[in-house]
Design a protein around this nucleic acid. Structure first.
Length: 443
RNA sequence: GUGGCCGUAGCUCAGCUCGGUUAGAGCGCCUGGUUGUGGUCCAGGAGGUCGCGGGUUCAAAUCCCGUCGGCCACCCCA
C-alpha cells in the first residue's frame, strides 16, 4: 500500500495516447498504401539480432549507440538500430526463395541509446522500403516517386525532396586529391545549412585537411543554386575530369528527368549537392525530405542507393536503393505544426443510450449499423443526453444517433451532426442509408 | 556519452532571488441552473507525494548533493 512503484517510462521511450496513436496509424496506413501501389511486399524481422549481425566484423559500436546485452542463453544480442541492416541479413538469408529483383517494405520500431531531443527518441518507428537486385536507374526514379507520392498523400503541407548523387562529390574530391578525406568533408558539408559557410570552411581546413582555396572550391560547389537543369549543366563542367563524377552527374540527370517525365512538380524535387547522408554505405543517388514549414526538425524521409547491401553476410552481390520514413519524427513535426487530428476515437458514430428500458434494442441497433460498415460506439450506460453529447463532441465522433422513448415509439432515429449541431429525423429502417450519405468521403 | 537550461494540480504557468501562516491562477474536469440535446454563460466542487531520494535547518516547493525525466548544443541522424 505505502510502497507503490512509481509509474514511469525510460528516457527516450514513450507512451502514445489515442490522439497521437491515431495520427501515427494514419501515417502508417497511408505509407503502406503508397508502397503497395508500387508493388512493395511486406516483411518483418525480429527486434533482437545477434550483435555480430548488427555490428559486422569490425564492431564499430561507438556511433551506433546499441542496446546490447547478454540474453538468457548467454548469447551476445542487441536491438536493431535501423531496418536496413536487418534487411541485409534477411536478404542474404532468403534471396534464394525471394528471387531478384525484390521489393519490400517494413515498418517497425528501432532503438538507439543516444540522447533525446525534439523528434529524436531512443525507441522510434521507421517505415522503410527498398528495391534490391537491380542497378537500373529506373529503381532510383521510382524511389523518388514513392517518396513524393507518400508525402503528397500524407497531406502534411509542402515538402521538398532533395536529391544528390554521392559520386559527384567524390568525383570532385578526386580531382582535388581529397578523396581520402571524403567522410570528413561530408560531415562538414552536412552542417552547411546549420552553421553557415564560414564555419564549414573552418572545419574543412581543420578536420578534412583541405587547403583554404580547396575549401573555397568545395563550398562554392556545395552552394550551387538554380534550377535542376542549370545545376546539372554547371556540374558537368565541374567534374569533367573525373569519370566517377561524370557518371554521378549522368545518373542524377536521369533521375531528375525521369521524375519530371512522371509529372512531378519541379518544386518538390530539388538537386542539392550539399546533402550528404552520413551513412557511408550509400554509393549513388541519395535523398532527404524536408517539410517546408518545419525544415529544422531535419529530414523526415531519407535514403539512397547502395552497391552491395549484404556483402557482410553473403557473396551474392545485392545492389539496391531504398528510403526510410521517420514516422515518429514526422509525427513530432506534425504535432508542432498542429496538423494532428484531435479525434481520440476511431468510431464515426456514437449511439446515445437514453432509454434505460431499451438496453437490448440499443445493443442490437449499434450492431446493425456496424454490419452496414460503420464504426459505431454505443455509450455504455444510460445517462443524461447532454453528457453523452459532450462525450461525443470531445472524442470526435462525427454524428450521434439519438433514439429515445419518442423515437422508439415512432420507429424513427435522430441523426445529429456533432460539428454543425444540426439534426434530422429519419425512419429507423433508413438509418444505414442516411448515415452512409452523411459519412461518405470521410474516413 | 559530454556540457547548458528546466521539472509546482490533467495542461500552461506564478511562488523559489532574501527558507516560516491552510501552495496559487487560467484553462480543463465533475455537479447544478426543475429532469430529451454538447461545444457559450452563471454558480458550486473535486484535484497537488511542489519529479524522486538524501542532506543542511527549529522549519524547505524555496538552500546543497545525488538520481530520474524533458529541452538545447556537441555528436549523430529518422
Amino acid at each position: 500500500m505505502t510502497n507503490r512503484i512509481q509509474p514511469r517510462t525510460l528516457k527516450g521511450f514513450r507512451d502514445l495516447l489515442p490522439e497521437p496513436m491515431i495520427a501515427r496509424e494514419h501515417l502508417v496506413n497511408v505509407a503502406k498504401r503508397v508502397y503497395e501501389s508500387y508493388g512493395f511486399s511486406p516483411i518483418d524481422t525480429p527486434a533482437l539480432e545477434y550483435t555480430e549481425i548488427l555490428l559486422g566484423k569490425g564492431g564499430a559500436e561507438s556511433d551506433k549507440q546499441l542496446y546490447r546485452f547478454e540474453d538468457n542463453g548467454g548469447r551476445d544480442v542487441a536491438l536493431r538500430f535501423d531496418l536496413t541492416v536487418p534487411f541485409a541479413r534477411f536478404a542474404a538469408q532468403h534471396v534464394g526463395v525471394l528471387g531478384i529483383p525484390f521489393k519490400r517494405y517494413h515498418v517497425g520500431p528501432v532503438w538507439r541509446g543516444e540522447n533525446t531531443q525534439r523528434g529524436r527518441y531512443r525507441e522510434f518507428l521507421q517505415f522503410d522500403f527498398d528495391t534490391i537486385g537491380t542497378t537500373d536507374i529506373t529503381a532510383d526514379i521510382e524511389t523518388v516517386l514513392v517518396v513524393h507520392d507518400l508525402f503528397d498523400a500524407l497531406d502534411v503541407g509542402e515538402f521538398t525532396i532533395r536529391i544528390n548523387d554521392r559520386r559527384i562529390l567524390n568525383g570532385l574530391l578526386e580531382q582535388l586529391t581529397l578523396l581520402d578525406a571524403s567522410a570528413a568533408v561530408l560531415r562538414a558539408l552536412d552542417k552547411l545549412p546549420k552553421v553557415g559557410a564560414e564555419a564549414v570552411h573552418g572545419e574543412l581546413v581543420e578536420s578534412a585537411g583541405a587547403p583554404s582555396d580547396v575549401a573555397d572550391q568545395i563550398l562554392e560547389f556545395a552552394s550551387l543554386r538554380g534550377t535542376n537543369d542549370e545545376i546539372l549543366d554547371t556540374l558537368e563542367g565541374l567534374v569533367s575530369a573525373s569519370s566517377v563524377g561524370e557518371r554521378g552527374v549522368v545518373a542524377l540527370g536521369d533521375v531528375v528527368r525521369g521524375v519530371r517525365a512522371a509529372g512531378v512538380a519541379e518544386s518538390r524535387v530539388a538537386i542539392d549537392v550539399s546533402i550528404a547522408r552520413g551513412l557511408d554505405y550509400y554509393t549513388g543517388t541519395i535523398l532527404e525530405t524536408f517539410l517546408t514549414d518545419l525544415p529544422d526538425i531535419g529530414s523526415v524521409c531519407s535514403g539512397g542507393r547502395y552497391d552491395d547491401l549484404a556483402g557482410l553476410y553473403t557473396s551474392q552481390r545485392l545492389p539496391g536503393i531504398g528510403a526510410s520514413l521517420g514516422v515518429d519524427r514526422l509525427l513530432a513535426a506534425l504535432d508542432e505544426l498542429e496538423l494532428i487530428d484531435r479525434r481520440t476515437t476511431p468510431a464515426e458514430v456514437l449511439v446515445v443510450y437514453f432509454d434505460a428500458e431499451r438496453r437490448n434494442d440499443y445493443v442490437a441497433l449499434a450492431r446493425r449499423l456496424r454490419s452496414a460498415g460503420r464504426s459505431v460506439e454505443l455509450y455504455p450506460e444510460p445517462r443524461k443526453l447532454g453528457a453523452q453529447l459532450k462525450y461525443a463532441d470531445r472524442r470526435g465522433h462525427r454524428v450521434a444517433v439519438i433514439v429515445g422513448t419518442n423515437e422508439w415509439a415512432e420507429s424513427t432515429a435522430q441523426i445529429k451532426d456533432l460539428a454543425t449541431g444540426q439534426s434530422e429525423t429519419v425512419p429507423l429502417g433508413d438509418l444505414e442509408a442516411a448515415l452512409a450519405q452523411r459519412l461518405t468521403g470521410n474516413s
